[in-house]
């Protein structure tokens, strides 16, 4: 028994050590470095809160801009993704011929590397020769500049995010499969229609899953990087300068690693606070067996 226990720890050791050395270590180091003027190449010194002051005082013109852009993106993309993947999950829960195949097709895009997706969408979204505007033109509808206009770039990227809803949808689907059939049968007996079932059985029963996806969506949304990095480089006129893109630029292009560390911690606190707020206001989430 003792030996087995030791083996248990031994087997878990790589993961535990990995966490301490490669995750917690750098995490704490970055906290310390955010109070210095570290730029990788210099002999750094402690500068107190100077990096944070630089950010919050607006001395760096991009901090509030990138924060605003990211909040806007999160506010758009999280509801869009949750609603669309929830609806898709409802659809794919229905029994129809070829359901398995359709499920695979819908899930597949989420395993395509983000860079490949970005590159393909660059073509699709091209205002002059892209497929989307071609379709709009064929339907005699007004065309869009998509990612090439300050006003449409963030909504476009948020819509593009639907493409990778597969993983969120899978979680919803798993949740849907878990709702006991008796509830629906009971509703049938009472004469409840599909809308009634959706709002009085499905959504309440799914609320923990929705809640989980909401939190994950928020966290991922704030960390959005790839699309903007590959497709827009933050433009036009910094309209898609996401927080993570800005952080990367500070760290590696502008070589202000300490400022980038401070940015990372500010982001951490923002996401933490937001998550807390969501938790505090989670009265709408129904847990089976809990007192309401």
């Amino acid at each position: 028994m003792r030996k087995e226990e030791a083996y248990g720890y031994l087997m878990a050791a790589p993961a535990i050590l990995g966490f301490f050395i490669f995750t917690l270590g750098p995490l704490l180091a970055s906290l310390w470095l955010s109070f210095t003027d570290y730029s990788v190449t210099n002999v750094y010194k402690f500068v107190g809160l100077a990096n944070y002051k630089r950010l919050f005082s607006g001395a760096d013109p991009f901090f509030y801009k990138s924060l605003g852009v990211t909040l806007y993106y999160v506010a758009l993309s999280v509801p869009i993704t949750i609603v669309s993947s929830f609806l898709m999950a409802l659809l794919l829960k229905q029994k129809f011929k070829g359901r398995g195949l359709v499920r695979v097709i819908v899930t597949m895009p989420s395993i395509v590397p983000a860079v490949a997706v970005a590159t393909i969408f660059l073509w699709l979204l091209n205002p002059d020769i892209g497929l989307f505007n071609e379709i709009l033109r064929a339907l005699h509808l007004p065309t869009s500049q998509f990612i090439y206009s300050e006003t449409t770039v963030v909504p476009t990227l948020a819509m593009m995010n639907i493409w990778t809803m597969g993983s969120t949808m899978l979680i919803f689907l798993a949740g849907l499969e878990n709702i006991p059939e008796q509830y629906y049968e009971a509703a049938d007996v009472d004469g409840g229609g599909p809308i009634y079932k959706l709002f009085h059985i499905t959504i309440p029963m799914m609320s923990p899953t929705i809640f989980f996806n909401l939190i994950m969506g928020l966290i991922n949304g704030f960390q959005t990087f790839t699309q903007a990095y590959i497709m827009t480089e933050g433009g036009p006129n910094n309209a898609s300068l996401f927080y993570s893109v800005y952080l990367y630029r500070e760290a590696f292009t502008n070589q202000r690693m300490a400022v980038a560390c401070a940015l990372a911690w500010v982001l951490f606190v923002i996401v933490l606070l937001l998550t807390l707020v969501v938790f505090r206001t989670s009265g709408w989430v129904y847990y089976e067996g809990d007192r309401q």
């Binding site: 091209n126 205002p127 002059d128």
Partner: peptide
């Protein structure tokens, strides 16, 4: 001269 958007294509 094409705008940067037009030049994209």
């Amino acid at each position: 001269m094409p705008t940067p958007t037009a030049a994209q294509s």
